[in-house]
Write a protein that binds this DNA or RNA. Structure first.
Lengths: 154, 154
DNA sequence: AGAATTATCCACTATTTACCACTATGTTTG
DNA sequence: CAAACATAGTGGTAAATAGTGGATAATTCT
């Protein structure tokens, strides 16, 4: 499995992990991620029926930016509302698990099996089924990775 | 077998090496390559079901570019998710082996026998079977290209 | 107060990590 | 050239850690 990478003093999240949510809504966060998250983190609604977890500081920055969005961008404003209103502060129990509120579980179709992926400066939580189908679909669509990488100058 | 070639202070990765992955997902990296990679490296999904190994600095650049892609666009978002969630920081044990996460083993159909090839500035990991068939296929193409060149009087 | 929900704590198991040992191959040197 | 030495790849064992599931204590709500 992967881990949090050092990046100029900052660490980043990478990799894909599978966990189960028990009947008490507890979900384990990969230990490598936990170290980066500190004591508390923010969970909220994300794109494509995922949930997003931000370290507290990241969230501060993001929330500030979101609030300052030009009101001309109406669609963006809609999503911002969803994100902000869905935000929940989660804290870890001694074993590094968080509680996922019901409305977020529902939003992301989380049942028993969850997948947690690291995305550089944030973490996403997916239901197993959603992630598998999304991954398969996207791997196909993304297709020519080489082309893309070239565009990125790699 | 070839080796890491010196090229103006910088070393290049060259050659084809065969290794086995044990039941603990450990894969040895050619010692010549290791010296160039330092303490840690990043493995991620590559072309044609191969895995790519980046030295830490190379990866930083790539990751930064990925982070700058607009997450508002479905396609870019998917690409970033695949690349980042598929990446893993690996560190070498005392004997120069790395752990290949399950999702990467699966992506590249890695079973027991792996082939590691040096491609100048990057390293690829292939499953034995995939590599053999790819090589056979490509060598044939190379033959065709040679034919063409002959036709052209070269 | 009692029921129910939430938080804190503890135990079991599987996995991971760190260490060490063996063998084969390659290199140096007398 | 051969013997001694060093290095690389493979495999296994033991200790530490991580993930899962319960049990108990605290809090809230009616």
């Amino acid at each position: 499995m992967s881990e949090a990478l050092s990046n100029g003093g900052r660490n980043m999240f990478l990799g894909e992990y599978s966990y189960t949510i028990d009947h008490k809504k507890r979900l384990a966060i990969p230990s490598k991620f936990r170290k980066e998250l500190g004591k508390k983190a923010i969970v909220t609604r994300g794109l494509d029926n995922s949930l997003v977890v931000y370290p507290a500081e990241e969230w501060e920055k993001l929330a500030k930016n979101l609030g300052n969005l030009p009101s001309s961008q109406t669609e963006a404003r809609g999503f911002v509302r969803i994100m902000l209103s869905g935000a929940a502060e989660v804290n870890f129990d001694k074993l590094g698990r968080v509680l996922i509120p019901d409305y977020l579980k529902e939003y992301s179709s989380l049942r028993k099996n969850a997948v947690i992926i690291g995305l550089y400066n944030r973490i996403e939580i997916w239901s197993e089924e959603n992630w598998q189908s999304y991954k398969a679909r996207t791997e196909k669509e993304v297709g020519n990775i080489a082309e893309r990488l070239k565009e990125l100058g790699i």
